[in-house]
Write a protein that binds this DNA or RNA. Structure first.
Length: 416
RNA sequence: GUGGGCGUAGCUCAGCUGGUAGAGCACAAGGUUGUGGCCCUUGUGGCCGCGGGUUCAAGCCCCGUCGCUCACCCCA
């Protein structure tokens, strides 16, 4: 048995690259018009960074992280998400000194040890944005609106935007108390995981699919928001409406990471698939301080690239095609084409060939498959007559060109 | 971590109540065609995922194992 790729990871083959490039280019262009600049942070960090920011009792930290000891005994983790690393870099390099608002975007692989299935891989790619330093609800709206616009530009419709508010640490405490009071009676009937979470993180109990039907009448966070959080949430809703961004409020929308506060949102696919969240994010006003920086509000989102690409209309997005396919018939002709190919490539023309020297029939097949616009044909006869044939693959028009300075002629013909 | 489905040629798959491998596509050579695409002929290519068991005989039945996949869970 030959060696295979690690379970749950995927090779992204050249065939699929046009879709990836399209997504990346569309996102970069859009984000930069909104004033976000790219940041690249390491794919691994000290484990403690994720434990502290994501939360020790979350599933991600408890059982999904790729954690190992470095050779010097330090505990290292492959990043399971992007925000922690960006915030760490923000604090470490004093980027708050740049101004009151810092806006970043990033893209790259994330790693979680989950059981793979459709739309869920152990190495998967995210594009994310973070805006640090502003607690004005308008920045929430800017980010949500930008996300909405991105999918408009990608021509993906039928996504639903759900929003909710999780409150701040003060009003969440009061909600947590009310929720624990409510859950207390049901405790014996809950699953073991929920019984444990009742103590460590009762909000997450509501998220448990096994027990969820039992919580129809549970208190909801939105009824427990303090005045400041309520006002913030109202402003977010109003301003989304002003910008014409459609949304619905989902009072049971809970995030799986502990650092979220106030505004949270999620973009879900319409179909009843398993992994139907395409993008999600929210505000994390306590995170910078948690990591050791100055008290700084922040908000961001991440989108799953594989999931997004699955929604794109693949046939409308194609890669680049070669301009010229060189078909040489026989070894002598192959040798003769080498400098021609080299010269044309150095002038910037994309040239494909397979150096096979085999039959014209098979080489024309390959030329056709490659999508080349033109084919250059050189055989024994052409070499004798000091000419080469340039064929337009679409129109099938042919013309002779002199062989002794074929590269110059082709450059003039094809690079105009 | 828990379930279901599936592992046969590079790809998509067929293979009957068990009798020791097939098709299409792709690839290669040739024919035909004004010099490729259509068509025709021929050819290359398989430890039937792996290991055990039952049997005179296993691609097929049984057990185990690994892998893929979908769902639960979790999440982007």
């Amino acid at each position: 048995m030959s060696i295979q790729a690690i379970k749950g990871v995927k090779d992204i083959l050249p065939h699929d690259m046009p879709l990836w490039h399209h997504l990346e280019k569309t996102a970069r262009t859009l984000f930069e018009t909104y004033g976000f600049a790219e940041i690249r942070v390491p794919v691994f960090e000290y484990t403690e960074l994720f434990a502290r920011s994501i939360g020790v009792s979350t599933d991600i930290v408890e059982k999904e992280m790729y954690t190992f000891e470095d050779r010097d005994g330090k505990k290292i983790t492959l990043r399971p998400e992007g925000t922690a690393g960006v915030v760490r870099a923000y604090v470490e390099h004093n980027l708050h000194a740049l101004g009151s608002l810092a806006k970043f975007y990033y893209l790259g692989p994330m790693f979680r040890h989950e059981r793979p299935q459709k739309g869920r891989y152990r190495q998967f790619y995210q594009i994310g944005v973070e805006a640090l330093g502003l607690d004005n609800p308008s920045i929430d709206v800017e980010i949500i609106s930008m996300l909405h616009t991105l999918f408009e530009r990608l021509a993906v419709s039928n996504l639903k935007l759900q929003i909710n508010s999780l409150g701040d640490s003060a009003c969440r405490d009061s909600y947590r108390t009310a929720l624990k009071e409510y859950l207390k009676k049901k405790l014996p009937s809950l699953c073991s995981n929920c019984q444990r979470r009742y103590e460590t993180n009762p909000l997450r109990v509501l998220d448990c699919k096994a027990d969820a039907p039992k919580f129809e009448d549970s208190p909801v966070m939105l009824d427990h928001l303090c005045d400041a959080c309520r006002s913030h949430f109202e402003n977010v809703k109003n301003r989304l409406a002003v910008l014409g961004v459609p949304f619905e409020v989902n009072p049971r929308l809970v995030r799986g990471l502990d650092y979220y506060t106030r505004t949270t949102f999620e973009l879900v696919m319409p179909h009843e698939g398993a992994q139907n969240t395409v993008a999600a994010g929210g505000r994390y006003d306590g995170l910078v301080q948690e990591i050791g920086g100055p008290a700084t509000p922040g908000i961001g989102f991440a989108l799953g690239m594989e999931r997004t690409i699955s929604l794109l209309h693949a046939d409308a997005i194609t890669g680049s095609k070669p301009s010229l396919y060189v078909a040489a018939l026989g070894t002598d002709a192959v040798l003769f084409t080498l400098p021609i190919i080299h010269t044309l490539r150095s002038k910037g023309l994309r040239v494909d060939t397979d150096y096979s020297g085999t039959s014209l029939k098979s080489q024309m097949k390959k030329a056709d498959k490659s999508g080349a616009e033109h084919a250059l044909i050189i055989g024994e006869e052409e070499m004798k007559n000091n000419r080469a044939i340039l064929r337009n693959m679409r129109t099938k028009e042919q013309r002779d060109i002199p062989l002794n300075d074929a590269a110059e002629h082709l450059a003039v013909l094809l690079l105009s």
